[in-house]
């Protein structure tokens, strides 16, 4: 099977967590001689090729980061420029990756994705959701490999089924909500660790202010 993969991420490929996820997915998908081509919407020069690939192939996967509860604006722009297919059996599948750990954060987007393929004359082939991906580009190689291993496995699954089966996608997406115990731990310790971690990253990046600064405070309830 040949699979067209489109990255809907806005970050350039070298800095993109979605690109890392795609690479891991490709590894599992290509194990048995399957092939892929990948197009990155962050690079507008690739849009024509991505459009041609969408038009001339029947297996399409779009991977992207969750932006404001749905697909990123550039991905919406790209998709709205496609001509809906007629009498095709094109299957359209999706991978959503987000920063928060719970799968419930991506369900609103998933609901939209279930409607989207029909708008483009395609069939829906499932959505894979994975949270807690914010640190993917910041961890060491060993931890990154550990975080990406499930995507390699999902590549194998997709190669076999040509879709993401619901029960597999649901198991992959866990936790749906953070367990009570984890919430208690977060409130007691986790939030302090998280604050310290973010402060250290900011310092390394050259942040001179406070992460909770309010640069437009004077505008609050005060129209020009």
């Amino acid at each position: 099977m040949h699979l067209v993969i489109i990255s809907g991420a806005t970050r350039p490929q070298p800095k993109s967590n979605t690109a890392k996820i795609i690479a891991a997915f490709q590894k599992g998908f290509e194990e048995n001689g399957n092939t892929t081509e990948v197009w990155y919407l962050s690079d507008r020069k690739q849009w024509d090729n991505a459009k041609n690939a969408f038009e001339s192939n029947e297996h399409i996967l779009i991977a992207f980061p969750l932006y404001a509860e749905n697909i990123p604006g550039i991905m919406l722009e790209f998709l709205s420029g496609l001509k809906p297919k007629h009498n095709s059996h094109t299957k359209l599948a999706f991978i959503i990756q987000g920063g928060f750990p719970e799968a419930c954060q991506s369900r609103c987007c998933e609901a939209y994705l279930k409607m989207l393929p029909a708008q483009l004359g395609c069939e829906y082939a499932g959505t894979l959701i994975k949270g807690d991906m914010f640190g993917l580009g910041m961890v060491d190689d060993k931890n990154r490999e550990k975080m990406l291993a499930p995507f390699v496995e999902m590549g194998r699954h997709f190669a076999e089924k040509s879709c993401f089966e619901k029960y597999v996608a649901d198991a992959f997406a866990t936790p749906e909500y953070m367990p009570e115990k984890q919430i208690r731990m977060f409130n007691m310790i986790g939030r302090h660790i998280s604050k310290f971690f973010m402060g250290s990253i900011a310092k390394k990046l050259g942040c001179k202010g406070n992460l909770y600064d309010k640069p437009y405070e004077s505008s609050v309830n005060n129209p020009v």
Binding site: A9, T10, R11, S42, P65, Y67, P72, G73, M198, I201, A202, L205, G206, C207, G209, N210, L211, Y212, D213, P215
Partner: peptide
């Protein structure tokens, strides 16, 4: 939005 995180981490 280019997802650069500058608004969170560099110029809050």
């Amino acid at each position: 939005c280019v997802g650069c995180n500058v608004c969170w981490l560099i110029t809050p």
